[in-house]
Design a protein around this nucleic acid. Structure first.
Lengths: 168, 168
DNA sequence: ATGTATGCAAACCATTTGCAATGAC
DNA sequence: GTCATTGCAAATGGTTTGCATACAT
């Protein structure tokens, strides 16, 4: 529950993972872990690259991609691909499982706490599959867009170019 | 429930959608819809492109991408991004909602029927969000990989190159 | 000392885009 | 006849890769 305690914990886990797999414990790797666990919510590689290089550290994209792969492999980070071209990541440890409400209109991703989906009963049905983590993606229209869409629909006799207008 | 009935139905829906949005009813668009609804399970753009051009029709990639966008927009097709670099698609109409069991070891995606996750009670909690569809992605290790992994782990004192060996 | 990890730049490849030709309306 | 759509080829951009250098072991 304690914030610094979590960082300590994940560092220990990561160290154990690196040792087990005979990977080197480089300062870059720990800096990335530290930085990710100071981040709340989702992030992508570009923002991670920029925020890390803005601050003290100097890290190459290649190293970021390499390290995130390790963190995914040991389960300290989770990867999402909500529909845009960029992958999103999220710290996994000390981060309650939650659904993702992805607005198919504006692309906004909101988190939504779910109940205990994987009760023992549910779990039973998945016997031949060792669950490591799961993601619930719920696509729909968020409240904001519902409102503005209602307005739009009134005057939607104007020409429509749905296909081309979705890119910036 | 009837197979040809479904095709008929989606064709009607697609036609209505095209009319409503003042898009043209080209033979390519209907051929793509027809082809997709003859496909069971997931597919990606490359396989769609190849299988369509193998058969009678001749379709460009650009048109496939354009049309799939329309089909996504009117809800007849669902898009998934399970973690690889290619997007996967799936027909949506007459296709029961199901979870996706994605093996993080071999990448295999299996479907798994779920119960009625969105009971009225559950639904209530999502008041400000109009659900259009949802995807449950469950990551873990499939039975096959669990077995072969058990063997591997025994002799895993040999060198480890987890990062580099995952691309073909 | 040894060989893995880093950082840079180039390569990759799914997807997008520009544009001339086609054909739905 | 008009203009959206097609198809091709070129461009885009997130991610991966090759290789020389740096450094954890």
């Amino acid at each position: 529950m304690d914030k610094s305690k979590i960082k300590e914990q994940v560092k220990t886990e990561f160290t154990a993972y690196l040792t087990l797999h005979k990977h080197r414990k480089t300062p870059e790797r720990f800096a990335i872990l530290e930085h990710i666990y100071s981040t709340k919510g989702h992030f992508d590689m570009d923002s991670l690259f920029k925020s890390m290089n803005n601050n003290s550290f100097r890290i190459s994209r290649a190293t970021l991609y390499n390290t995130i792969e390790l963190l995914l492999d040991c389960g300290l980070v989770v990867k999402h691909q909500f529909g845009a071209n960029v992958s999103q990541y999220e710290r996994a440890y000390g981060n309650e499982n939650h659904d993702h409400l992805i607005c198919i209109s504006c692309g906004e991703v909101k988190e939504h706490k779910n109940g205990n989906l994987f009760t023992p009963t549910q779990q039973k049905k998945l016997q031949r599959f060792k669950i490591s983590y799961y993601s619930m993606y719920i696509y729909g229209i968020c409240g904001k867009c519902l409102k503005s869409k209602a307005k739009q629909d009134v005057k939607s006799n104007t020409k429509n170019n749905n296909i081309t207008d979705k890119k910036k």
